[in-house]
């Protein structure tokens, strides 16, 4: 567009400019702490006290340290890939099972009142429990391997999925259901033509919540055991004070989380995203 002054352009991209500067400032600040820049800078002002502004990289790592470590792990040794594959596999199986079980369960509870009365106390109790407290129990039952982790992920993910699927059926316009039954539509047909389409957005937002929960599952389940997995890598690096590596692991999880929630948000938007999430948000 013509006639836009620099001031206009600055104002229109204010969000980007401020956000990027804040992020850059954060990185510089961080790097400076670990390299002792701030200690040197403030020594004339604060004297000996400025020493507190230098923090050992072993505690906080540094942006360049993390970048270097990431480069090594991804491109040079490639050691991170098995961890990602292992955790990703667990996530897919656990989340997949949660969807396969949670969606039908929730739909059935939404449709058949008595069933929801039965399900409700269990669902609320499970929802109020921090489900990771079951971890020691699962370890006792099936050990620390792949399936234990899948089970934790499943348990965390299945609750929001079921709750949202249940709420989804409840919000179906009763007039539509009446129309269907007056035409003598079969139960299956009603599900397919009326309930499923209007419930879909809700179910999708349940899945978005579930993805967040299953990320917790990955990290927590891998507190136990000592094979492969991103959580385990973070853990081992932490106990050997390899802070750069810890941050690389955290970074992988951040990026995976951002990607997945963005992808689901995009899908949700496609199937009209104006409907709110039920149960917990974010």
């Amino acid at each position: 567009m013509s006639g836009r002054s620099i001031a206009d352009i600055c104002r229109d991209n204010e969000r980007l400019i401020i956000g990027a500067s804040a992020f850059a400032a954060f990185l510089v600040l961080w790097e400076g702490f670990s390299r002792g820049w701030w200690a040197t800078l403030f020594t004339p002002l604060l004297g000996e006290g400025a020493r507190a502004l230098a923090i050992k990289p072993i505690f906080i790592s540094s942006p360049t340290g993390v970048a270097q470590q990431a480069w090594t792990m991804f491109a040079v040794t490639g050691e991170i890939w098995p961890h990602i594959a292992q955790s990703g596999g667990q996530l897919i199986v656990g989340l997949g099972a949660a969807i396969l079980i949670g969606v039908p369960l929730g739909l059935a509870a939404g449709r058949y009142r008595t069933f929801s009365y039965i399900l409700d106390p269990f669902l609320s109790a499970l929802n109020a429990t921090p489900q990771v407290a079951f971890l020691p129990l699962f370890v006792m039952w099936i050990g620390t391997g792949f399936w234990m982790r899948v089970l934790i992920i499943f348990l965390l993910a299945v609750i929001p999925i079921t709750m949202n699927a249940l709420a989804a059926v409840r919000t179906v316009d009763p007039r539509l259901l009446k129309v269907a039954s007056s035409f003598g539509a079969s139960e299956l047909h009603t599900f397919r033509t009326i309930i499923a389409p209007s419930a879909l957005p809700f179910i999708l937002s349940g899945m978005r919540l579930a993805v967040g929960r299953s990320m917790i599952g990955i990290v927590v389940a891998e507190l136990y055991g000592s094979a492969t997995g991103i959580g385990i890598m973070i853990n081992m690096a932490g106990s050997s004070f390899d802070t750069d590596k810890v941050f690389v692991g955290v970074l992988v999880i951040v990026i995976a989380g951002l990607l997945m929630s963005e992808a689901l948000r995009a899908i949700e938007r496609r199937y009209d995203g104006w409907r709110p999430a039920i149960g917990d948000n974010y």
């Binding site: 401020i18 956000g19 500067s21 990320m215 853990n235």
Partner: peptide, 28 residues
């Protein structure tokens, strides 16, 4: 809104990651 512009990216990142991931760092 400017506070949001500045802090939003950090909050979004923290929101995308389960904070229990930071456990090892917190222990450190």
């Amino acid at each position: 809104k400017r506070a949001q512009y500045a802090l939003g990216p950090f909050i979004d990142v923290l929101n995308a990651v389960p904070r229990v991931t930071f456990m090892p760092i917190m222990v450190l």
